[in-house]
């Protein structure tokens, strides 16, 4: 079987491999190479070593600022999204009437694209701030909390669906045994339910973390970084470095490489961290 199939590489594997090479792998290696070069287009490339990586931090303070803004945003949203979605999941697994309708409604915002979401929330937040004579771009903290609210609105339903499935999979005899032993609500929650859904918590933490870190569309549509790039997140900062002004493509590419490393490291760290916790329990 394996021997015969082996000859069919060109038919089965090649289409995918070619697309993958063209759309991802070659651009990826080119990107890494170009991060060490000065260039405006691919015809005029000059090797400059690690200069771009230094420039990323020295040309202006925007990249460092975007990094902190993104970190703060990610920490806040990871916590709030997971707490809210887990709480809602607990409420929706009590066997109440209408549970399915609530689940359907809560999940819906997730399907709406980032650009559309950004504009929707811009109107709402500006509408609220109107009472105080402000707009979302008057102060970076409005943009920050606006993004946090938007992100929660979009992601809570999604994570909730995952938590609901996990809670429903907890063996009922485990919960019954706890009840017979006289364990209270919070004891059951912390010592049985949460450990039992730990794998889902791993997944949700991982997903909210990378979602927050990679956020772009919502950032672009909600504030586009205003005021004065104070609400610019990493992805948008990289985009603006590339396309905002000419001559900084190399710096943008260096920023993108560092961004990729950060995302990859976080992904691996987080996975390892929460996986080891699962074993302890």
């Amino acid at each position: 079987m394996e021997k015969t199939l082996k000859k069919y590489f060109a038919l089965f594997a090649l289409p995918g491999v070619i697309c993958f090479l063209l759309a991802f792998l070659i651009p990826m290696f080119m990107g890494v190479f170009l991060s060490f070069c000065e260039f405006r287009n691919l015809a005029d490339v000059e090797w400059v070593g690690i200069k771009n990586y230094i420039s990323a931090f020295t040309i202006d303070k925007n990249y460092t600022h975007a990094l902190w803004f993104t970190v703060k945003f990610t920490v806040v949203t990871v916590i709030s999204i997971n707490v809210l979605s887990f709480s809602l999941a607990l409420l929706l697994t009590k066997g109440l009437k209408g549970t399915n309708i609530f689940r359907t409604i809560f999940f819906m915002p997730n399907l709406i694209g980032g650009i559309v979401l950004g504009w929707i929330w811009q109107v709402i937040i500006n509408g609220v701030l109107l009472n105080y004579g402000q707009t979302i771009v008057s102060d970076p903290k409005y943009g920050f909390w606006g993004l946090v609210i938007l992100m929660n609105w979009q992601n809570v339903g999604y994570m909730m669906v995952i938590y609901i499935a996990a809670i429903q999979n907890i063996p009922t005899d485990m919960l019954e045994a706890a009840e017979i032993d006289g364990a209270g609500y919070f004891r059951t929650l912390f010592q049985i339910k949460i450990p039992a859904v730990m794998p889902s918590i791993t997944i949700c933490l991982f997903m909210t973390l990378t979602n927050g870190f990679k956020l772009f569309d919502q950032n672009l549509a909600l504030t586009a970084g205003a005021p004065a790039k104070q609400t610019e997140m990493l992805a948008l900062n990289i985009y603006n470095t590339f396309y905002g002004r000419i001559g900084f493509e190399g710096v943008g590419q260096a920023k993108a490489v560092m961004f990729t490393i950060m995302v990859a490291v976080i992904a691996l760290l987080q996975l390892r961290l929460t996986r080891s916790k699962e074993i302890e329990h």
Binding site: F24, I26, P27, M28, M30, G31, L34, T210, F213, K214, F216, A235, I238, Y239, F242, E249, G252, Q253, A256, V257, F259, T260, V263, A264, A267
Partner: peptide
Amino acid sequence: IVPFQMVMFT
């Protein structure tokens, strides 16, 4: 796991 910004230009 690679974000799109890594390869958007190329």
